[in-house]
Amino acid sequence: MTPEARAYQDFVGACRRFWAGPLFRQLRDEAETCAENPELFATRIAGGPTHAYFAWFERHLQRMKYSGRWGLVPVLEAERATLAAGLPAEGDGLTLDPGLALPGYWTDHDIHQHPGGLADEISAFVYREATGQGGVVGQPQLHDRFAALVLKDRPARDIVDLGCGFGRSAVAFARAADAAVTGIDLSASCLRLAACELPEALRGRVAYRQADAANTGLAPESFDLVTSTMLLHEMPAPALEALIAESARLLRPGGTVAHLDFLPPADALGRLLYAGHSARNNEPFMRDLAELDLEASFRRAGFATLRVDEFAERDGALDHPRQAWRLPWTVILATKPLSPEDPA
């Protein structure tokens, strides 16, 4: 990346911090004054100037990050040949499926405003650069915290990580458990980058496979733990139902499914910003996840217990009042009964 492009990305990042910090707090304080009055909230907050600026910056700082003169897509396009040459083809734990039918919900939207999405050969480098160092944007500990939470009191020998992207979540689970981890994703680019960057100590224990998380083709009852991180909200309702059924098929009796995703908060401002983020970040299926009857869907798939809990991506993340905008991270945990007759 050139010094100009680095400076531009620093500028966009700093503006994002202002948006998530001082601008969010201004909106939060204004919303507080009419929290009990839906009509006032609609006119003064949802229809007010602070919210308009908040929405504009959310939409356009993301656009600026990816597109335009020094956006990540054109900047990394200039390095295409070098980047592509560094990616492994297959083998050494990497299995690709060039004939895989990519679902329309995945190919038809520039998710996260990433032009072209994750189908292009070097798109994983763009995604990694957009995500920042470790974890996800601004939350470097997120994957490790999730893995530690899930694996506490739930030892696992075989783990499948659905929608593993370029491997950070799969690596976190492999580091936290003495287990074999299979990462599944639709994006060949992401899987190739994941395989390329797999720490040497984990080679032989982590495998990556190109497949649809809703129809993996993996053997039934071959895992103790099915996980996903930020996957469910990218899928429309029929695909979500299929993924839940597939998770039940993959799990051994007594196994656990653990998803880290986003569900709408209870407060009016939180709900407004959740719906807005879905539209502004080109993630239209967040609404499908928000409206899904999780209890009924997991029960239909044969799961016995379901827990839905807020997740702290860092220490103090759930403290009130919120000091910065955050995605409403939520852990969804379900257990497959030891036998069909055993409801617990």
Binding site: P3, E4, A7, Y8, D10, F11, V12, M64, W70
Partner: peptide
């Protein structure tokens, strides 16, 4: 953004 890049 142009101003910031030029400053840098």
């Amino acid at each position: 953004a142009e101003v910031f890049v030029l400053r840098a």
